[in-house]
Design a protein around this nucleic acid. Structure first.
Length: 358
RNA sequence: GGCGCCUUCGUCAAGUGGUUAAGACACCGCCCUCUCACGGCGGGGUCAAGGGUUCGAAUCCCUUAGGCGUCACCA
């Protein structure tokens, strides 16, 4: 603390600051020039000029002996030999005060770069500085939601910066460091777009190995054995934007949604509840005879079944998937679900569905 | 209110006097397909407005509008 006091007093001696006595105690204020203007160079914005008459005599050292931010940042940055000051645009208007301080002390000016803030779009369409009310916004919030740190960094880097002579969007941390340059920065505020973050995040998941994805999603795969975890990973990694999407996608494997005959109707595949029952019956018979409950075998058996039936693939698969999952959309097809469920559960679900259909 | 910063598709953005104004996300359509997704192909959509300067303006100048910020013994 003493060092700030020392510098503040030095300014008083040189006539650039003065003591102010109030009920609160004694403070030191910076004496601003009343005429002229102060100009500083910002890498992004060029020269910025503000009339000195706009500047108020700001407090440097508070009556409790603590320095104000506007004073401390100048002293600190000089002492720490900071060469580039990169901060938000909200500091632009106070920068002339800092610049004057540097001049009073005879210190070398650092390079200033004022970046635009990241904005958020509210439900009503209004745009303002990104904050809690826009949803998960801090890095930790996003991690919590199941985005990969690399994906978040990559996305945020592209908010306000873009590579020169390139349209590349996916950057590893190394590439980011290597490609980053000041002249790729943009001056205008950028709106944080969750849809694009989702896309980019998905790209990262798709690029992962099944093993790594399974590991990242570990907490959601607790109910499955090792081979099934890896298999689930292969199915899920191309369909997920964030890890927290997983539970809703695989819940049906543990908890079968209530029976709904309507789901068995599908126009495109020419399936009706009645037709479904006709298909389910022989299919169950066939599956009961399968001992090697593996993906390849299951696939072979079902393909053969389809061929024998003379029906279209979709016509056969539709009722099976509905019976097994009770939902129109599932990660993976019939064979995959059969495998994940195991023989016992699969047959149980199939039989229940058949019974309910009749 | 004074002062300052900002303004290219819905969003992120290339672009720095002559381009059919890139690309990405999103959206729509088609293809692939046992659903969704993935993948492939294609489509609509943008220079805030008005004045100049110029043979020629998204690019330069002025004005207006809008957005944001700042005017603390906060950081």
């Amino acid at each position: 603390m003493d060092i700030y006091k020392k510098y503040a007093e030095q300014l008083v001696e040189t006539g650039h600051a003065y003591y102010e006595e109030t009920e609160q105690g004694v403070a030191i204020r910076q004496k601003m020039p009343t005429v002229g203007e102060t100009t500083f160079y910002d890498v992004l914005h060029g020269n910025i000029t503000i009339a000195n008459s706009e500047l108020e005599d700001q407090v440097l050292l508070k009556s409790d002996g603590m320095p104000t931010y506007n004073f401390a940042n100048v002293v600190d940055d000089h002492l720490m030999e900071v060469s580039h000051i990169i901060r938000g645009t909200e500091f632009i208007t106070s920068t002339p005060k800092h610049v004057l301080l540097y001049e009073f002390f005879g210190w070398e000016l650092p390079t200033f770069i004022h970046l635009a803030p990241v904005m958020g779009k509210a439900a009503d369409g209004s745009i303002s500085k990104l904050s809690k009310r826009h949803g998960a916004t801090s890095f930790n919030d996003l991690i919590e939601a199941g985005y990969l740190p690399e994906a978040i960094t990559n996305y945020v880097a592209l908010l306000g910066w873009s590579p020169k002579n390139s349209c590349q969007e996916i950057f590893s941390m190394d590439e980011l460091i290597k490609n980053f340059s000041l002249d790729g920065l943009s001056k205008s505020p950028a709106v944080f777009d969750y849809a694009k973050l989702d896309w980019m995040s998905g790209e990262y998941f798709k690029a992962m190995s099944d093993e790594n994805f399974a590991q990242a999603a570990e907490k959601y795969f607790a109910d499955f054995d090792e081979p099934r975890k890896i298999f689930l990973a292969s199915l899920l990694k191309t369909r997920v934007a964030k890890l927290s999407d997983i539970p809703a996608m695989i819940d049906f494997l543990k908890n079968l949604p209530p029976f709904d005959a309507e789901l068995f109707s599908n126009k495109r595949n020419k399936v009706t509840p009645q037709k479904s029952a006709e298909i389910l019956k022989p299919a169950i018979k066939l599956l009961e005879t399968v001992d090697d409950w593996s993906l390849v075998t299951l696939n072979e058996k079902i393909s053969a079944f389809v061929t024998e039936s003379g029906l279209k693939v979709g016509t056969v698969m539709w009722p099976l998937r509905i019976a097994l999952s009770m939902q129109k959309v599932t990660p993976g097809g019939v064979t995959e679900i059969l495998y994940l469920l195991g023989k016992k559960d699969s047959l149980e679900r199939l039989n229940d569905a058949l019974r309910n259909l009749q």
